[in-house]
Amino acid sequence: MNGLKRQWRPSAVGLAAVLILSSAAVAQNLPLTERIQQCGGCHGEDGNSQIEKVPSLAGQPEFFTINQLVLMREGVRRIEAMMPFVNDLKDEDILALAKHFASLPPKRSEEAVDPALVNRGAEIAEARRCASCHLPSLAGQEQMPRLAKQRIDYMIYALKSYLTDSRTGADTAMTAAILGASDADIAALAHYAASR
């Protein structure tokens, strides 16, 4: 796209590059509907995940999804389970997928939301100023994801990844924002987000 001649060659991440090279040859022209079906297999047909620790994508800001797909494709945000699906994505595919998921209405998962934890999570979110980036509705904006109605187990997993700096490809903003949170704090934040 945009005149960029992309040449996937052995590089600092030899393996990722080879993967990209090999599968690009087989699946380059998968139609969008099939790609969406692939995503839906784990993330839910309507973009609302029913699988433990798999995030919902429905209603995610377009920019957020594009950004994450690019980073996964580049091998910057490394998620093994995602590699087979992202390594041959073209920029055009990424744009279309992001638009598709942004248009779907987010729905809360079947997980039980604890009102006491919601209240406590609201206080923690206030103190940590989550809304300054993710908006008071937690709908997200630009590169910042929607947290509202996200799966509780995924939110806990994601926040812990930031806490331990094990989420590759992320910059320091979230590591800073979640610094020092306890397991109980993180659970409360997850219930609060799911409730929004």
């Binding site: 744009l95 940590r128 300054s132 590169q143 903003a173």
Partner: peptide
């Protein structure tokens, strides 16, 4: 939002309570 240019991770300074 709405353009085909997109945004990468927030950079730099801390926003701490």
């Amino acid at each position: 939002a709405g353009r085909t240019t997109l945004l990468a991770g927030a950079v730099g300074s801390l926003i701490l309570a």
